[in-house]
Design a binder for these strands. Structure first.
Length: 438
RNA sequence: GUGGGCGUGGUGUAGCAGGUUAACACGUCAGGUUGUGGCCCUGAAGAUCGAGGGUUCGAAUCCCUCCGCUCACCCCA
């Protein structure tokens, strides 16, 4: 057969068997954010292209070659959001949230789009849970963000995580470092690949982050941003490390390390940057949560100068890591069958079944009526296939005496048949006795 | 953008030193006496073997091209 349509490359359908895990992860994200006093904000999935150019940074890979840009019928230049922070900042400014009591705590949950070559843990449409805290310049805020991230991951059930941290400085610290780095690199530039030369021109700091083999030795000897921190940046960094080290002790099996070469691929970061990944991984691709401080972003897209920090975390990657853990490898995909299936055996019974179903659904009981295209046997087989938890069968005979048999625990091997009046209240009582947890 | 692996019914696979009706498991559907499931039994539907071209008397099996999936690199969540 010729399958005509397929989900576009790098996108996934979330099937019913995935419902459970996705709900779990999303619920955990929301709950954890709420326990830190964060509130949800949902922004559109596309924005004016310019927002990302300015926000994420003209020189980044994301902006240069990974954005889904398009023009709408009004000739507006729009882009499917490649990340969440720029949009949240835009909304923050647009709705005057800078006039609210600081700090303002926000989180989001939704799809992001990047045109890259898909591979394990990397998609063109993926989903992120992200948080942002606005208006708090203190290192405590940085740590709160990391704390929230670790809490979220640990609530999911992930173990053995490392937080990699670094400071890329800001203001004068950043300038001085950059000068030193450029001086150091100049003699080597001729040996760089085209790609690296370009990087060197646009944003030399990102050379540190390069994984190219022939650069590794050069990078080893290169100046590091943390050695150039001074004044506020220095104070911020020292204090940050201090608070972080005591906070991380509150978590079992998590640790942190300073990675002097950690540089994020998005331009807006200042001072603190971090990345969380499982112990066993080495590639950056396995990073499950990452973020940092961005004190200039709000201003650079037209808002008032507002210090801020946040993280983004890929849900697919979290799930990928969860699935690696033994406790999730077994029974993750058993769907819950309906609480009750009704098999009506006559026209009158069908009417009655519809009536019962309506009343009981009002009590949040999930009900399926047996498919009328099938024989009774077929309907019962179907009930079995969808794991109906209880089963009610009746026809004209039973309607006359207003009594029938209900098969409780139909989907188990200890079925319990009981007589019951054909009445929603009486049936409800049968469905919620001591042997059933509602 | 670069490189590796793969592409057979809904799913997972077998077949591949070329040879008549492409096999198996699971799933689906229908039956196994009148209105009662799960096990079991019987039967049925369902793939022109990713697409196109080539070699050959003959190709799912060999060659080429393209497409798709997947993994890795760059980079990112």
């Amino acid at each position: 057969m010729n399958m005509k349509f397929k989900a576009p490359r790098g996108t996934n359908d979330h099937l019913p068997v995935d419902e459970h895990i996705w709900n779990f992860v999303e619920k955990t994200a929301r709950k954890t954010a709420h326990t830190f006093g964060f509130h949800q904000i949902d922004t559109p999935m596309f924005e004016q292209t310019e927002l990302f150019r300015r926000g994420v940074g003209e020189g980044t890979d994301v902006v240069q070659k990974e954005m889904y840009n398009f023009k709408d019928l009004g000739n507006n230049e729009l882009t499917l959001r490649p990340e969440g922070t720029a949009s949240v900042c835009r909304a923050f400014i647009e709705h005057g949230m800078h006039n609210e009591a600081y700090p303002v705590r926000l989180f989001y949950l939704g799809p992001m789009f990047r045109h890259e070559r898909p591979q394990s843990g990397r998609l063109r449409q993926h989903h992120q849970f992200g948080v942002e805290i606005f208006g708090d310049p203190s290192p405590e805020a940085d740590v709160e963000i990391i704390n929230l991230g670790l809490s979220y991951l640990s609530n999911l059930g992930l173990r053995e995580l490392t937080v990699k941290v670094n400071s890329i400085g800001s203001g004068r610290s950043r300038e001085k470092f950059q000068e030193a780095l450029v001086q150091y690199l100049i003699p080597f530039v001729s040996k760089f690949s085209n790609e690296e030369q370009k990087k060197f021109k646009i944003n030399p700091i990102r050379i540190l982050d390069s994984k190219e083999k022939n650069l590794q030795d050069i990078i080893k000897g290169a100046p590091k941003p943390i050695d150039f921190l001074e004044d506020e940046s220095k104070e911020h960094w020292d204090s940050f490390l201090n608070i972080l080290s005591s906070t991380i002790k509150l978590f079992d099996g998590f640790n942190y390390e300073i990675d002097p070469n950690l540089v994020r691929g998005l331009d807006y970061y200042t001072n603190t940057v971090f990345e969380i990944q499982p112990f066993d991984s080495r590639s950056a691709q396995s990073s499950v949560l990452s973020g940092g401080r961005y004190d200039n972003l709000v201003e650079s897209i037209g808002g008032p100068k507002t210090p801020a920090a946040g993280f983004g975390s890929g849900l697919e990657r979290a799930i990928l890591n969860l699935m690696k853990q033994p406790e999730y490898q077994a029974d993750t995909h058993n769907l819950n069958g309906p609480k009750l299936m009704i098999v009506p055996l006559s026209e009158k019974a069908k009417l009655k079944a519809a009536e019962l179903a309506k009343e009981m659904r009002r009590n949040n009981i999930s009900i399926v009526i047996g498919p009328q295209s099938k024989s009774i046997k077929g309907q019962l087989r179907y009930a079995n296939a969808i794991s109906a938890q209880n089963l009610l069968i009746f026809g004209d005979k039973e309607l006359e005496i207003n009594k029938t048999l209900i098969k409780l625990k139909f989907n188990s091997n200890s079925v319990n048949e009981q007589s019951v009046a054909i009445d929603s209240k009486k049936i409800l009582d049968k469905l919620t006795p001591e042997n059933e947890v509602r």
